[in-house]
């Protein structure tokens, strides 16, 4: 494992910790899209089916279990915690899951490495992860006030895949020129979706102003 991949994983982990911290400490999930969080549960459940079939490393197994556990607990808080669920912006979080999930599934049926259940679901999870942030970005655009924890959460979540892109370039040159179009192109799409958010996040940080996305 190289330093870029490790930095990417740590950024991803940190983003989730910040989100859980926000939910637990402030007892509020204002500004967080339940649709996006549910899509991440689907992403992790379909990607980590190989937990049962192959072992890569202690690190991989532990991280997979942490991502599964934390994503499920975030959804649990937002749907069932008696205080937290009242802070959920249901009326603004209207993006439909299936607009994203169905096309990703069809694409995975068409473009994959191997036509097996595990492989198609893995590919589906890569495609779905690329676009799963969309409901969250739509919700942020509709929010008048984006609190710091929410802004930092989305920033770190976007930075994670950008670091993976660097990791893939590094691996290409150091590991026998392995080519992996499916994650590469999906990761590129995923990072591009954040471009606009990154611009306003950095601008607000430099000017020391409150983050707000133009409608």
């Amino acid at each position: 494992m190289n330093v870029f991949r490790l930095a990417g994983d740590m950024t991803h982990l940190l983003s989730i910790i910040i989100l859980l911290l926000k939910i637990r400490a402030t007892k509020s999930c204002t500004g967080i899209s339940l649709k996006t969080q549910e899509l991440y549960v689907i992403v992790f459940l379909t990607r980590y089916l190989d937990l049962f079939t192959k072992y890569i490393s202690f690190y991989n197994t532990t991280m997979k279990l942490v991502f599964l556990g934390t994503s499920i607990s975030i959804v649990w808080y937002m749907r069932y915690h008696k205080v937290v669920k009242q802070t959920y912006n249901k009326d603004q979080d209207t993006f439909r899951h299936y607009f994203l999930a169905i096309p990703c599934f069809l694409l995975a049926l068409l473009i994959h490495h191997e036509f097996t259940v595990i492989e198609v679901l893995w590919t589906f999870s890569i495609y779905l992860e690329a676009v799963a942030i969309l409901p969250q970005l739509v919700l942020l655009q509709r929010s008048r006030n984006i609190d710091n924890l929410t802004g930092n959460y989305v920033f770190l979540l976007g930075a994670y895949r950008a670091l993976y892109l660097v990791n893939w370039v590094y691996r290409y040159f150091t590991e026998n020129h392995l080519v992996r179009w499916i994650p590469w192109l999906s990761g590129l799409v995923q990072t591009t979706l954040y471009a606009d958010f990154f611009y306003y996040y950095i601008k607000s940080w430099k000017n020391n102003e409150k983050l707000q996305l133009p409608a």
Partner: peptide, 10 residues
């Protein structure tokens, strides 16, 4: 440019 199947990332 053959795709390598290599799922060792998260």
């Amino acid at each position: 440019f053959q795709e390598t199947k290599f799922h060792d990332e998260l």
